[in-house]
Amino acid sequence: MSFISSLKRAAARLVVLGLCAASSGCGDPLREETIARLGDEAPGIAPGPLHRAGQPCLLCHDGSTSTPFSVAGTIHLRSDGAQPAASTLVRLVDGLGNTHRVATNCAGNFFVRPGDFAPAWPLWIRIERGDWAQEMDSPVNGDGSCATCHAPSPSPGSAGPVYVIPFEGEPEEVSCP
């Protein structure tokens, strides 16, 4: 990206943030900037349960403008995050011992609405596929958006994507509308 393109993009963001701050319909400019950095929707995937796999869901799904989620994330097939892990169970246990299970969809996404399960933090998470299961080593302490800590690439600030290893003979290509 050229320097001029970068300046134009930054100026456009400032205009959007300025308009947002001047209106009553917008909230936190830092949040808005973080959402803008996520970029556009993937081509051919409409907003809905299959979109934005691997991104921090609760940035938008906090109830301010989109359907609220209490917990949401994506599970991939293999560590490279190239394929979704469909039909994987996610077991959530909150600080009071309340349990909720949810399955990933064909995009590898899962989400829980607050009316179905509003966890009392901290939260422990276990992933289950067939006879195989793996628990997170540490609890989640108040951010139900898995990609906050599990960004697409491992780094000092991220454990990398959540993934499972395919079963022997399991097709790696998942059909997902």
Score class of each variant (00 low, 15 high):
residue 2 S to H: 01
residue 3 F to P: 14
residue 4 I to G: 09
residue 4 I to D: 14
residue 6 S to W: 07
residue 6 S to T: 06
residue 9 R to D: 07
residue 9 R to L: 01
residue 15 V to D: 03
residue 15 V to W: 00
residue 17 L to C: 03
residue 18 G to S: 04
residue 19 L to T: 04
residue 19 L to E: 08
residue 20 C to S: 05
residue 23 S to R: 04
residue 25 G to M: 10
residue 25 G to K: 12
residue 28 D to N: 05
residue 29 P to L: 00
residue 31 R to N: 10
residue 31 R to Q: 10
residue 31 R to K: 12
residue 35 I to C: 08
residue 36 A to D: 14
residue 39 G to N: 12
residue 41 E to F: 13
residue 42 A to N: 11
residue 44 G to F: 12
residue 45 I to W: 15
residue 49 P to S: 02
residue 50 L to W: 15
residue 56 P to W: 00
residue 59 L to C: 11
residue 60 C to A: 05
residue 61 H to I: 00
residue 62 D to N: 12
residue 62 D to L: 05
residue 62 D to M: 02
residue 63 G to K: 03
residue 63 G to S: 10
residue 65 T to L: 10
residue 66 S to V: 09
residue 67 T to H: 06
residue 68 P to V: 02
residue 70 S to V: 05
residue 74 T to D: 07
residue 74 T to R: 04
residue 76 H to G: 07
residue 78 R to I: 02
residue 79 S to Q: 15
residue 79 S to I: 10
residue 83 Q to K: 13
residue 85 A to Q: 09
residue 86 A to C: 06
residue 86 A to W: 00
residue 89 L to V: 04
residue 90 V to P: 12
residue 92 L to W: 13
residue 95 G to D: 11
residue 97 G to D: 07
residue 97 G to H: 01
residue 98 N to W: 10
residue 100 H to Q: 10
residue 105 N to W: 06
residue 108 G to S: 03
residue 112 V to Y: 08
residue 114 P to W: 01
residue 114 P to G: 08
residue 115 G to A: 14
residue 116 D to P: 14
residue 118 A to K: 14
residue 118 A to N: 15
residue 120 A to N: 07
residue 121 W to R: 01
residue 124 W to M: 13
residue 124 W to R: 14
residue 127 I to L: 12
residue 130 G to Y: 07
residue 131 D to H: 06
residue 131 D to C: 01
residue 131 D to K: 03
residue 132 W to N: 13
residue 132 W to A: 09
residue 134 Q to P: 12
residue 136 M to T: 11
residue 141 N to I: 06
residue 141 N to V: 09
residue 141 N to Y: 11
residue 145 S to F: 08
residue 146 C to F: 00
residue 153 S to V: 13
residue 155 S to A: 14
residue 156 P to Y: 00
residue 156 P to D: 05
residue 158 S to V: 01
residue 169 G to R: 04
residue 170 E to V: 03
residue 174 V to D: 12
residue 177 P to M: 00
